[in-house]
Design a protein around this nucleic acid. Structure first.
Lengths: 292, 292
DNA sequence: TTGCTTGATACTCGGAATGCATCAGTTCCC
DNA sequence: GGGAACTGATGCATTCCGAGTATCAAGCAA
């Protein structure tokens, strides 16, 4: 079995792609570093790095192991911190994930409310896209997510926090800003579109497919974050479908026009594992559902 | 910093609530176990166990650390297993490009076969024309392409997957449907033709130039996708040369007549970079060439 | 060719973990 | 009340592992 030190060694080498520099970063010399990585590879059972007597590069297995290694080390660092916080008499820790987009809208007020209502609870905030949040909850690395459907209704409970409109982000002075009616699919026939990633931003992708049949050939970029979309719009690369709260970004070079879609279609939910035993989470849920 | 062994020691003690039995379970003697747990507690910074000279019990911090510890060890066990699976090609990602036309014919069965043969491999599908696929492979953004010649035989390996006939798409009731012999170039002298794009659909363009000398002036549209061609035929804009599998589209307003060209001239190849290191690709190739 | 770079290996040394023996505190029972 | 039994901690000798130094081997450049 391998040790965390070996994982740390591997991480440094994988990031530097150079044993000498990695050793320097770890405050050790190169030979023991080589041996530690060799040991790790023997423990894992497959080569993680390909050494070329001149260059070092990750194998495919090494690439995915690197991801796991990062998570492992993060968890290894977080565990004692968590234990210390508990021991220090704090009421607990609430690990809250949020999407970049929800950060603009209600994250601020929500954090304020939580700290008011549960002043002794430490809040750990992490920005992740929805699926990553769901995965993190499933792995027990997160207590509460601010995300969008779909998610497994079996294992997760949720509550709708916010409904907002889907609007079209366009550069200022764009022809569509001069329309005095909501933009329809027909208006977009010849518009380059900055599209959503079909899996990472599945919620928006599905919504756009459903309400606005965008010509496949019009999609000029595929991205997963609202902020990136707006930047691309500002750069004149096309128009984009974004939640109304993107206005709060205050980005120059972007303005927003109404779309011919139902109001309030963009939903933001609080999502949690119904089997979680974190007392801080339950305390928060009591605040969220004052009834129950 | 602590080690995974220390965590394993703590886990055993926390579960047994007895140093002696925990030591037995870990195949070690009791004194070093005590010291390992002490070390872990020093690393974490707070007591995790309360020893009572008669009983052992978890502190509050110990309880939450126990949970984290379990997760940590699970992740530490899972990571190498995952890496081994990746290296064996039994898991991972296979990025598969396909032309719209190949989508109608064998993409479905191929995808089915891949998911049967390599159930843990994620398939990323992307529709691109052949040259874009080749470029994507060259840039390392795609592992496998379903495309048509020509492509650089130096850097790419390939395998013929399908040969089919070139047929003529015409509107139903068209004069050429009443011929009782294959259509020849002469029959097309006065027909408006929906033509292929000379670079984006070079394979079909070259093939048509080679087998049927179409009058230049007859070409009323130049498009690069079979589906677009068929739609234009259905709209009565002309006739078009398409692979027989376009029948599978089931488009109303289009029927197909035989052409006086050799059978099986439309080829579809699986194409890949012979220097690719993706184990999932190699696993798939083993499936494709059971011989080698 | 020579010299430089880079990762692997040989060897020695110091620190850490192990196991044995033992201690110290508690509980139980006669 | 006192000794036996039990439990976790500690002292000590041994062993083992990992670190550092020196060096090697392979590839590349001039």
């Amino acid at each position: 079995m391998y040790t965390l030190d070996q994982v740390r060694c591997f991480l440094a080498v994988a990031e530097e792609l150079h044993f000498g520099r990695a050793a320097e970063r770890l405050n050790m010399t190169q030979p023991p570093l080589s041996r530690q990585v060799q040991k790790l590879e023997r423990a894992v059972g497959v080569p993680l790095l390909e050494r070329d007597n001149r260059h070092v590069e990750l194998t495919t297995a090494g690439t995915v192991f690197l991801e796991e290694a990062r998570r492992l080390l993060t968890a290894a660092d977080a565990a004692p911190a968590l234990a210390r916080k508990i021991a220090a008499g704090r009421a607990g820790v609430l690990r809250l994930g949020f999407t970049a987009a929800s950060g603009f809208s209600l994250l601020g007020t929500l954090v304020q409310e939580i700290t008011d209502f549960m002043p002794d609870v430490d809040l750990d905030l992490q920005e992740l896209v929805t699926i990553e949040q769901i995965e993190a909850i499933r792995r027990g690395e997160l207590d509460l997510a601010l995300g969008r459907p779909p998610f497994d209704q079996e294992s997760f409970d949720s509550r709708l926090l916010l409904s907002e409109d889907l609007v079209l982000a366009v550069p200022p002075g764009h022809a569509l800003t001069r329309l005095d009616r909501p933009v329809t699919a027909a208006d977009l026939r010849d518009q380059p579109v900055v599209g959503h990633h079909p899996t990472k931003a599945r919620y928006f992708y599905d919504m756009v497919v459903r309400y606005i049949a965008v010509e496949h050939g019009n999609v000029v970029h595929v991205v997963s974050q609202i902020l990136t979309m707006c930047s691309l719009v500002a750069a004149g690369r096309g128009v984009a479908f974004v939640p109304e709260s993107a206005r709060l970004l205050g980005l120059p070079g972007v303005t927003f026009v109404e779309l011919d879609v139902p109001h309030g279609v963009v939903e933001l939910h609080a999502i949690w594992d119904r089997s979680s035993k974190n007392p801080a989470l339950h305390e928060f849920l009591r605040y969220l559902h004052p009834s129950s």
